[in-house]
Amino acid sequence: MDCRLGCGACCIAPSITSPIPGMPNGKPAGVRCVQLNDDNLCKIFGQPERPDVCGAFVPCEDVCGDTNEQALILITELEQSTG
C-alpha cells in the first residue's frame, strides 16, 4: 500500500520518543507533530533529522484503513493497546 498523501495520521496518533526538530523530547500520542504542514505533509521527509521511527513506518491496510479518518482511529487504537 502507498501512503495517502495528506493523511498525516501517523504524525498525529502515535507517540514518538526520539527527538524531532522543534520537539526535542519527541511527541505524545494524539499531538500533532510540529513538522506536519497545513497539507498534512512532513516538512522533513527524506531529511536526516527525520526520526528513524518515522522513516520505518510502512503503511498497510490493517493500520491505515481505507480513509484518513480510519487511519487516525486505527493508529490511535494501536497506540493505546501498546502504550
Results as ranks from 00 to 15, higher is better:
22 G>P: 08
6 G>E: 08
79 E>P: 04
55 G>C: 09
1 M>T: 05
71 A>I: 07
60 C>V: 03
25 N>L: 06
38 D>A: 15
69 E>G: 03
46 G>Y: 09
5 L>P: 03
72 L>D: 00
49 E>R: 10
65 G>I: 05
42 C>H: 07
11 C>P: 11
28 P>W: 00
61 E>N: 09
67 T>I: 06
9 A>T: 02
60 C>F: 04
28 P>I: 05
50 R>L: 07
21 P>T: 14
32 R>P: 07
58 V>Q: 15
15 S>Q: 12
55 G>K: 15
73 I>A: 06
26 G>L: 04
40 N>E: 01
29 A>L: 01
77 E>I: 00
23 M>D: 10
3 C>P: 09
54 C>M: 13
56 A>W: 00
7 C>N: 06
83 G>I: 02
68 N>P: 07
12 I>A: 10
59 P>K: 02
70 Q>W: 00
78 L>A: 13
13 A>P: 06
13 A>G: 10
6 G>L: 08
23 M>E: 14
33 C>N: 10
82 T>V: 12
6 G>K: 10
60 C>T: 08
32 R>Y: 01
3 C>D: 02
21 P>D: 12
62 D>I: 02
47 Q>Y: 07
52 D>E: 15
28 P>F: 07
5 L>E: 03
37 N>D: 15
41 L>W: 05
40 N>R: 11
50 R>S: 11
59 P>S: 02
11 C>E: 11
51 P>I: 13
73 I>L: 11
32 R>E: 15
76 T>C: 12
54 C>V: 10
2 D>C: 03
41 L>K: 12
78 L>R: 14
82 T>K: 11
2 D>G: 03
80 Q>G: 04
74 L>A: 03
21 P>N: 13
42 C>F: 08
68 N>A: 14
42 C>P: 03
12 I>N: 10
16 I>F: 14
52 D>Q: 15
44 I>L: 13
7 C>Q: 07
22 G>N: 06
26 G>Y: 00
53 V>S: 14
77 E>D: 14
75 I>P: 01
23 M>T: 09
32 R>T: 15
18 S>K: 10
57 F>P: 04
7 C>H: 04
51 P>H: 12
64 C>D: 09
55 G>S: 13
13 A>Y: 06
63 V>Y: 06
32 R>C: 11
9 A>K: 06
57 F>Q: 06
65 G>H: 04
34 V>M: 05
68 N>S: 12
71 A>V: 05
20 I>M: 07
8 G>L: 05
6 G>Y: 04
12 I>K: 15
13 A>V: 06
37 N>E: 02
53 V>D: 11
17 T>I: 01
14 P>W: 04
31 V>F: 03
70 Q>N: 03
55 G>W: 07
81 S>P: 02
70 Q>V: 00
6 G>S: 08
42 C>Q: 05
52 D>G: 10
51 P>F: 13
15 S>Y: 01
82 T>E: 08
35 Q>L: 14
19 P>S: 09
41 L>P: 01
55 G>L: 08
30 G>D: 06
31 V>E: 11
21 P>H: 13
66 D>S: 10
31 V>D: 00
24 P>K: 09
2 D>Q: 13
35 Q>I: 15
59 P>Y: 03
29 A>Y: 10
67 T>Q: 01
2 D>H: 09
30 G>N: 09
28 P>M: 12
27 K>V: 08
5 L>Q: 08
63 V>H: 02
